[in-house]
Simulated scan of single mutants.
Amino acid sequence: MSPTRGTRRIALIAPARYPIREPYAGGMEAFCHTLVRAVRDMGHTVDLFAARGSQGHVTDFELPGVDWADLPLAASDTGYPPGAREAEDAAFRALLQRLSAGGYDIIHNNSLTPHLFHPTAELPLMTTLHTPALADMQEAIAGAGEQAGRFAAVSATTAADWVLPTPATVIPNGVDTIRWQPGPGGQHAVWFGRIVPEKGLHLAMDACRRVGIPLVFAGRVGDHHYFSTHIVPRMTGQAATWVGALDHKALKSLVGRSRVCVVTPRWEEPFGLVAFEAMAAGTPVAAFRRGGLGEILSGAPACLAEPDDVDSLAAAVLAAADLDRGLVREWVTRHHSLSEVARRYLGFYREVVER
């Protein structure tokens, strides 16, 4: 890739909870890592501020992350062990001071902290909104007003959920279609992602069992209570098999050898990166028509089901299994390649700098 209109020095701030490395904890972590790589490949300098244990980040200033080592069964993707939230808040306040010293052409915030929005901070700040509105972050943005900077959102659905000083620019996420190569398909369905209630794995298990297609699922357990009460009881016979959290090489192989990918958000999914990764492997998607995922897949070669409806999802799984893998791959390459997303962000950075 070639540089785009001059070289810039960029600070990219990741979400603080998990390291930015493979296997990715979730879609936000995958987005940050792959975007950093793509923008660096275009010739720009990117300092990644992320949790300790990340790859390719600034090592002399690390965010603390969340360590559940002493309370493994209490671990969740939304809560904090004692003292962790306070440590995270202090780290972001210190990061704001460091960034205020200058030196960056653009500061690209992907975190969920309110502490980077300050009415007196004059920063070249832009924030990508990856989630529906969060109360403390929304309050901080309102308090900062124009000093909150500019905003991008991963879907129009997500953009509409926030009240912002200036409208958000919608830049859907992208997939590294060089790394995600077409696979041969197979006989089983696949589900992958964080194993938490809002991702609805148990509904994917029910739908696949209903149509007699075995399901292989991969991912990190983000809610142990949900896993033990809703997932383990459904793992009977050969109907569903858990292969754990896989690195990218193993995950791409699994997805590429799958007949269909099932995506089951039970919340207003802002984007749904797993669907687009599966499509880059040529694996057709059956998904709930919900949030940004339903919005963006509405014109895609994918099969959408009514939210939370197992019968509708089962029908979508059967229909998706017959889609042409080449057409699926071609659509995502044309509309959601990582290189195109990186170019759009570089254009947006330029707008922020020249404002």
Rank of each mutant, 00 (worst) to 15 (best):
F276I: 05
T241S: 08
L164S: 07
D89Q: 12
A287W: 05
G222E: 04
G185H: 07
E269G: 09
V352T: 11
L12W: 08
T229V: 12
P265I: 10
L125A: 06
G193Q: 11
G244N: 01
R329L: 04
G174K: 13
A207M: 12
R40A: 09
Q97V: 14
V328M: 05
A286M: 06
Y80K: 06
R334C: 04
R234F: 00
T177W: 01
D322Y: 00
T120N: 15
L297N: 02
R220Y: 00
G27H: 08
Q187P: 00
T131Y: 05
V285C: 10
M28I: 14
A159H: 05
A87F: 02
T236H: 07
L96K: 15
G143K: 12
G326N: 13
E268Q: 14
I231D: 04
G222R: 07
R259I: 07
E62V: 14
A142K: 06
D311K: 02
S76N: 12
E62D: 03
D247W: 05
T169Q: 14
L327W: 01
H57D: 06
N173T: 00
T127W: 05
G291A: 12
A75E: 14
G26K: 06
G272I: 10
K252Y: 03
L12Q: 15
A50H: 04
A218T: 01
F31Q: 10
G183T: 01
R290P: 00
C303Y: 00
A302F: 04
P307W: 03
A140E: 06
P114I: 03
E198N: 13
M1P: 15
G185S: 08
G244R: 01
L293V: 05
Y80L: 09
S298G: 12
A168F: 02
R355P: 00
L318T: 11
P81T: 03
L123V: 09
R234V: 00
R37G: 12
R40E: 15
D206H: 02
E86N: 07
P172R: 15
V352F: 03
E269W: 09
R343P: 00
G294H: 08
Q181I: 08
A14V: 01
M205T: 02
V328C: 05
A16K: 02
A14P: 01
E268N: 10
L116N: 10
T34Y: 07
A189P: 02
A69G: 06
A204H: 04
G291Q: 11
L71C: 01
S253V: 01
H336S: 09
A245N: 14
P184N: 04
E354A: 13
G103Y: 07
W242N: 13
H118L: 03
H33M: 04
W331M: 08
R17Q: 05
H33Y: 09
G174Y: 06
R9G: 02
G26W: 04
R329I: 08
G292I: 12
A321I: 06
P124T: 12
A300G: 08
A315F: 00
Y345C: 07
H336E: 06
V332D: 05
P284Q: 04
W267T: 11
L48H: 07
V46T: 03
S312F: 05
G27V: 10
D308H: 15
A94K: 13
A91S: 14
A142Y: 00
E139K: 12
I195E: 02
E122G: 03
G294E: 02
G183K: 06
G294M: 06
A11V: 08
L164W: 04
T229F: 02
M235A: 10
R93Y: 02
L254T: 10
